[in-house]
């Protein structure tokens, strides 16, 4: 599928290894345009989180090129204060583990952290924090210590801590992992709303049900850390062979009266077969 708009992120043959030993990505190329709703789909260990870290300007690949908003995304580029300032203002990253993201002593301080580091004046900081707390309906948590919250509350505070940044791009790492059904459903709605109001949303996940809602376009990473497919949501989710190969679904053996058979756990069409 060709993109009509100018890309905001471009990766060209990017490879990444941890400590020069463990390979996390092999020759990955992709492009993301503004206001897109993208999913990076892959099994555990396929390199999706690493890819998000690269897009967030936190990891820098030894091989390949990364461009963001028309500029090369390198360690050198971040030494330029104005570039670092402008990039961090535009891109927000939600970590998979909220305990990593919530390091401040209170919820209020956590939500105020990003606007304060970006040098906004006091009035603007207070207004952004109050707005984020109100939108996520967590005003009552303002003085609580983040580590004393439930997982769902932690996730909401983590979102509020990015919301107060007013980023253009949201990078979400396994956002629905560990959430109860109600919070998960709320969060999926929230991601859709973000995109509807004009944000670019890039989500790393292996949850096929979630992808159905939160992505228009999907990039698939194999267990060998290569980008092996890209396409629309419909194209990717209907390719059972691809999903099986990437360990994103599995053969499911079950019995219908006297008939026992196996098929992928997920199937888009109705499940019809003759019963004796």
């Amino acid at each position: 599928m060709k993109m009509r708009k100018e890309p905001i992120f471009e990766l060209e043959r990017v490879s990444f290894t941890y400590d020069g030993k463990v390979t996390a990505l092999r020759e990955v190329s992709l492009a993301v345009a503004a206001r897109e709703k993208i999913a990076l789909l892959g099994a555990n260990g396929s390199g999706k989180s690493t890819l998000l870290m690269i897009l967030a300007g936190l990891y820098f690949p030894a091989l390949g090129q990364v461009r963001a908003f028309g500029n090369a995304l390198t360690e050198e580029a971040f030494k330029d204060e104005s570039f670092a300032f402008s990039f961090r203002r535009k891109v927000g990253l939600l970590f998979q583990d909220p305990d990593v993201q919530l390091f401040s002593p209170t919820v209020w301080d956590e939500v105020a952290f990003a606007p304060l580091q970006l040098g906004l004046d006091q009035e603007e900081v207070v207004s952004r924090v109050e707005e984020a707390l109100r939108l996520l309906r967590i005003e009552s948590l303002r003085d609580r210590a983040p580590h004393r919250l439930s997982e769902g509350e932690k996730k909401k505070v983590a979102i509020a801590s990015i919301l107060s940044l007013h980023p253009e791009v949201w990078l979400l790492d396994e956002p629905t992992a560990g959430l109860d059904p109600r919070t998960e459903s709320w969060f999926l709605d929230f991601i859709c709303q973000l995109n509807e109001v004009g944000h670019t949303v890039i989500t790393a996940t292996h949850d096929l049900d979630a992808v159905d809602l939160i992505a228009d376009r999907i990039y698939v990473l194999s267990e060998e850390n290569r980008l092996i497919a890209q396409g629309t949501r419909q194209e990717i989710l209907s390719d059972r062979e691809l999903l099986l190969r990437c360990n994103l679904t599995h053969e499911h053996r079950h019995r219908h009266e006297r008939l026992e058979h196996a098929h992928p756990h997920r199937h888009p069409e109705r499940h019809i077969h003759p019963h004796e």
Partner: peptide, 22 residues
């Protein structure tokens, strides 16, 4: 490992070595 990840989380939200508090 946690300290490294927390540092990255701080960087991603604009931390540049000098903490600003309100």
């Amino acid at each position: 490992h946690l300290s490294q990840e927390v540092y990255l989380a701080m960087l991603s939200r604009g931390f540049r070595g000098e903490a600003q508090m309100l």
